[in-house]
Every structure is written in C-alpha cells, then in structure tokens.
Simulated assay, not measured.
Amino acid sequence: MLILIMGLVIFFCVHSVRLVAPQWREASFSQQGAMRWRVRFGLITLLATAFIIMGYLQMRAEPVWLWFPPVWSRHLAALLMLVALFFVGSAVIPNTTMKKKIGYPMLIAVKVWAFAHLISNGNLADVLLFGSFLVWSIVSFVVYRRRDRKAGVVREGESGVPFDLAAFTFAMVSWFTIVFYLHQSIIGVSPLV
C-alpha cells in the first residue's frame, strides 16, 4: 500500500503545481525553458506512474474487499468510459465544443473514468487509486473554473460539428480497442464479463 500511496502523492504533487502555484510554475518554465521543464515533468510522472502500477498490482495480488459490486456496474462503467473517451477526444482535438464550453475536458474525462472504475471495483486498491483521482479532478476543475471566471477568461475560436465528430470518432475507436482488446490484455480483466 505504501508504494501506491507514494506514487499517488508524487503524481498529484507534480500535476498540482499549476493548481496551487501557477506563478512559480510560469517563472520556472521561463527560466528553465520549455524542453527542460517538460523532460523533468515527464520523468517524475513516469516514476510516479511506475510506483502507482507496482503498488496497485501488489495490493491487487492480496485484495482487501470493501464491497462486491453487482455485475451491472461493469456494464455501466463500460458505457461511462465511452463518455470519458469523448471528453479525452474533446481535449486533444482542437476547437471542440466541449473545450470551448467547459475549458477542461480532460479533467471531466478523469472524473468520469475514476467514477466508472469506483462503481465497478470494490477493493481497497481500487478505492485508493480511483477515489484519489476522482477527488483530485473535482478539486482541480473547481479551482481552474473559479480562477477563469475571476480572470474573465473567454474562450474564443471556432468550434463546430467536424471537430466534435472527430472527438466522437476518437472515442468510438478508442473504446472498441480498449474494451475488446487492451483492457483484457493489459489489465487482465474484460470489462464486459
């Protein structure tokens, strides 16, 4: 459990710099240069992700069950993942309606992903992993939206159906790939069983 918690703490500390110290981040970014900042950020993120995976796998080897989710929760989670992947597509594809309207579709994707996995998994490792991501994404979204409103941020730019269709296509292709191939081969569990 300690390795998982250590990985989560490192991950969230690194990913919360912009949240809690935006001026320091910008100053460091300009002093060190974009490439150096991104390399350090990426290496620390990789380290944290490795700790999270190792700790999660250790805890899953000897699970501590908090509840036993009903079978239908897996099917609901699979459907929610389609929604989460649409928000991922909306975040990575420029000029989508979701990006223009809410500003932070990737945080919405993390919220939906974490919630979907919380309802369909009931052991302590899942609660620690997905619960912490859910709390972090909710807090981050609220802080960023409040900061944007205070600063009077208006998202300009052309959004439209072609960009949203691209996000939807991304979601469908990703969902089918994950559900019918990747989830089973990487995680070892089929989301549809």
Rank of each mutant, 00 (worst) to 15 (best):
residue 77 A to W: 01
residue 130 F to G: 05
residue 110 V to S: 09
residue 75 H to G: 11
residue 127 V to D: 09
residue 8 L to Q: 01
residue 137 S to N: 09
residue 113 W to V: 04
residue 99 K to N: 15
residue 16 S to Y: 03
residue 69 P to S: 11
residue 127 V to Y: 04
residue 37 W to A: 13
residue 107 L to T: 06
residue 112 V to M: 03
residue 66 L to Y: 06
residue 75 H to Y: 09
residue 12 F to G: 00
residue 173 V to Y: 00
residue 105 P to H: 04
residue 9 V to Y: 04
residue 133 F to Q: 06
residue 94 P to N: 07
residue 149 R to C: 08
residue 33 G to T: 03
residue 101 K to R: 14
residue 135 V to L: 15
residue 42 G to M: 08
residue 70 P to M: 08
residue 35 M to L: 11
residue 93 I to R: 02
residue 150 K to T: 15
residue 188 G to W: 06
residue 77 A to H: 00
residue 30 S to M: 11
residue 11 F to A: 08
residue 85 L to C: 05
residue 108 I to W: 14
residue 138 I to K: 12
residue 85 L to D: 06
residue 135 V to W: 10
residue 192 L to R: 12
residue 44 I to M: 12
residue 10 I to M: 09
residue 162 P to R: 04
residue 73 S to M: 12
residue 165 L to H: 00
residue 72 W to L: 14
residue 57 L to V: 11
residue 10 I to S: 04
residue 53 I to W: 09
residue 186 I to V: 15
residue 89 G to K: 02
residue 2 L to R: 05
residue 81 M to E: 13
residue 115 F to R: 08
residue 91 A to T: 08
residue 158 E to K: 08
residue 71 V to C: 03
residue 120 S to K: 05
residue 106 M to L: 15
residue 128 L to I: 14
residue 121 N to V: 04
residue 12 F to M: 11
residue 86 F to N: 02
residue 192 L to A: 14
residue 96 T to R: 03
residue 121 N to F: 02
residue 36 R to T: 10
residue 51 F to P: 00
residue 40 R to M: 13
residue 76 L to P: 07
residue 173 V to T: 04
residue 13 C to R: 00
residue 69 P to R: 03
